[in-house]
Write a protein that binds this DNA or RNA. Structure first.
Lengths: 251, 251
DNA sequence: TCAAAAGTGTTCGTAGTACACCCATGT
DNA sequence: ACATGGGTGTACTACGAACACTTTTGA
């Protein structure tokens, strides 16, 4: 009986988001894999779950390993679990995927299992989202899950993310978009407080539109119930100083 | 290195929903466990994932084992993955939780690992939902995940569902409620086609209100975009025969 | 013919959109 | 002073809620 029970490897895959205030761009962390499979391919940061470690603790350890950051307060939420057998080529592995929203853009250090670690700028291109770092570009897909996994074995190449990470990234973007109007946790990448303009910047990218296409007055009226005023104002650019807001704690 | 990697058991937990047209009640399947741990406790149907079996295939096998039903067409969707170490008492096990919406209420047969299998009527009681079968009652919780798992080790009793199934059920109800207005897959338990009254019956229960509190005229206007007319009318009760609708295929 | 249930239509209030106008700062 | 961006206010529109009214069946 025990033999037919499979005990596959449990991989924690983490999509780590942050925000670059200097360029007002959303960033996603990718690492270059040091080992096979997919050696030298870019991938979402992963780690194996260890004994006596919860998924949350594994996520925390992953962040510490990959970017040398020990956060006291940060937000991680479960995305989904990916179990399709075609997602790995050799030994079977399930992926428990999480998303982490870092309140700042930390400098990176490539940790165990990676020869490089970089922030990729998150944007959009026609109908898909895109991660860019200099000449490197990775796009999300418009395929369905069935379509994607069917074609996956044939699409192995250096231009693609490792494993099914393109699909995981696609699901992540869709989830964030869906939650923008009622639980915009993605705004946590703006840190403790933010201006309405910064919030609109993020909304604009996920909605594949421009900042100016989102009217500030209307945005305030429709989303203010999600925010709390954070009193003081900042002063970084020309024009009238903006008020600061912070995310209203949910529930 | 390999030794520190944990390979916990992978449990597939399935919340199986159906609808009893005779009594117009929502039903959830529970089984009585044949083996330790939680021997003789009621629980959500579970199975271990086997080698060379995807989570979807395991779900299909579980339905076949528990209720002897081989469906060609049915809908299963992922709920979440539960990894808290406190969820099991002995060996650690992750739970990949899925929801299945059966298009009919099948007769049951207790399969392997269960001494009994019954449909429980789904209703609500004050602030919680409740599963009832004669003198048996199981409620959802209003605690947070942290609160729930902290108290879990102390709450083992025959009056409670096994493991953290109370929490899994709570998350499931919340998910269905959240999706009622944009992707009401729960309506699949009504079968291929349904009347607006039947749809309102389901909405009423999840919203913890009464059927008559949901105005038929307004319900049609606000939710018609989710449905397609299924032409003919049924004739089962007094009054004007109702039109039939079916769920609009998503995307 | 009356009750019950389904379907249609009308009014009203609220919430989102478009847009004009005022305010505060840097150059 | 003027350009830039933030903030306020107003008119218009759309959609959901409340509810009256009509239609179709069974008893």
């Amino acid at each position: 009986m025990a033999n037919i029970l499979e005990r596959p490897l449990i991989t924690i895959t983490n999509i780590i988001w942050s925000f670059d205030r200097a360029t007002q761009q959303i960033q996603v962390l990718l690492v270059k894999r040091a080992h096979a499979p997919f050696k030298d391919s870019w991938a979402l940061p992963e780690t194996f779950m260890r004994a006596n470690e919860s998924a949350d603790e594994a996520t925390l350890r992953l962040i510490k390993e990959k970017i040398g950051l020990t956060l006291t307060e940060f937000h991680t939420e479960q995305l989904a679990t990916f179990t399709d057998r075609r997602r790995t080529t050799d030994e079977r592995a399930l992926s428990l995927a999480y998303m982490t929203f870092l309140p700042e853009m930390s400098p990176l250090q490539a940790g165990y299992g990676a020869t490089d670690a970089r922030w990729f700028t998150f944007g959009f291109l026609k109908k898909t989202y895109q991660l860019s770092n200099q000449q490197l570009h990775f796009q999300t897909t418009n395929a369905t899950a069935d379509q994607y996994y069917q074609k996956l074995p044939a699409t192995k190449s250096a231009e693609q993310l490792a494993f099914d990470h393109q699909w995981i990234l696609t699901v992540a973007c869709q989830r964030i978009l869906n939650k923008l109007d009622y639980q915009p946790n993605i705004l946590m990448i703006l840190g403790a407080s933010f201006t309405l303009r910064e919030a609109r910047t993020i909304y604009a990218i996920f909605r594949k539109t421009t900042l100016n296409a989102i009217d500030n007055s209307n945005f305030k009226k429709t989303h203010q119930h999600l925010f709390l005023e954070a009193g003081t104002t900042s002063q970084l650019r020309v024009g009238r100083p903006a008020r600061l807001y912070r995310l209203k704690p949910q529930n």
